[in-house]
């Protein structure tokens, strides 16, 4: 006897299989763009005068930050969708986007640290953007932990949806509080500060292209993760002897 979620999962799988072309297109597109992006970053964009070659990490760092935030935006919308409708597909989308978001936020924090060490002379400083990023990361690691520790999949879905809403609303409040907090405690910048000269147009083009590339990569990863999650649910249903 087949079950409703199993059928739903199977139907969704079938739907994804039908759109294998979409998936292959996304894969090919993001691969091609990534190669082009690497070429732009390492061959075409000029080396920054003051910071040197380490500045090129910015072409990864900024898109990672963008994708992280985009992913959490998707989590927010999917969470509202789940809380309102209770449909599994919203949970699949929110869960998948949260994992990708945490991955890219982690990369963003690491690349940011690597950049900060030679430029600011420290791995970390409690500047508003860094602090907010760290709290953002903590919020969504909490989201994933909550899922892992929830008693049932249904509760995991509902609890994490609540966290997905609360966390996203919290981000701007965190940002303001941290900005005001840092105004009271001026940050210490050791080493040469980031220059605020006009960006070389090639740098700007590279950065914009990189952001687009990472966005396509995000869409592709989200697609893959969602279909993987559907397959996981299908296996779970089969395991329970249905």
């Amino acid at each position: 006897m087949t079950t409703r979620p199993l059928q739903a999962a199977a139907a969704q799988r079938a739907g994804l299989a039908d759109s294998a072309t979409v998936r292959m297109t996304l894969l090919a597109l993001s691969a091609a763009m990534m190669f082009a992006d690497l070429a732009l970053i390492f061959l075409w964009a000029p080396t920054e005068q003051v910071m040197g070659v380490v500045q090129r990490i910015f072409y990864f760092h900024v898109p990672e930050a963008w994708v992280g935030f985009l992913a959490f935006g998707v989590v927010f919308i999917a969470s509202i969708g789940y809380l309102v409708t209770g449909k599994r597909k919203w949970d699949v989308a929110g869960h998948s986007a949260a994992e990708i978001g945490v991955l890219f936020t982690t990369l963003m924090l690491i690349t940011g640290s690597i950049w900060a060490k030679p430029v600011w002379g420290v791995w970390w400083t409690w500047d508003p953007r860094l602090t907010t990023s760290l709290i953002l990361w903590l919020l969504y690691v909490g989201y994933l932990m909550l899922r892992a520790y929830a008693p049932t999949p249904a509760k995991a879905a509902r609890y994490s949806a609540i966290m997905g809403v609360i966390g996203f609303i919290d981000v701007p409040i965190v940002y303001f509080s941290v900005v005001w907090w840092r105004n009271i405690h001026p940050e210490l910048i050791i080493g040469p500060a980031a220059p605020r000269d006009a960006l070389d147009p090639r740098m700007l083009v590279t950065l914009i292209f990189s952001v687009f590339t990472f966005t396509v990569l995000f869409v592709y990863l989200l697609w893959e993760r969602m279909s993987l999650r559907n397959a996981e649910d299908e296996v779970k249903a089969l395991r329970q002897g249905e």
């Binding site: 709290i135 919020l139 909490g142 909550l146 520790y149 509080s177 907090w181």
Partner: peptide, 24 residues
């Protein structure tokens, strides 16, 4: 309260969300 290791789950969720309250 419904999760496994509930003692740790609450601070993990609450401290980041409530960080603006602590700062303020």
């Amino acid at each position: 309260v419904n999760t496994r290791s509930r003692e740790i789950m609450l601070p993990v969720l609450l401290l980041p969300v409530a960080s603006p309250v602590v700062i303020a």
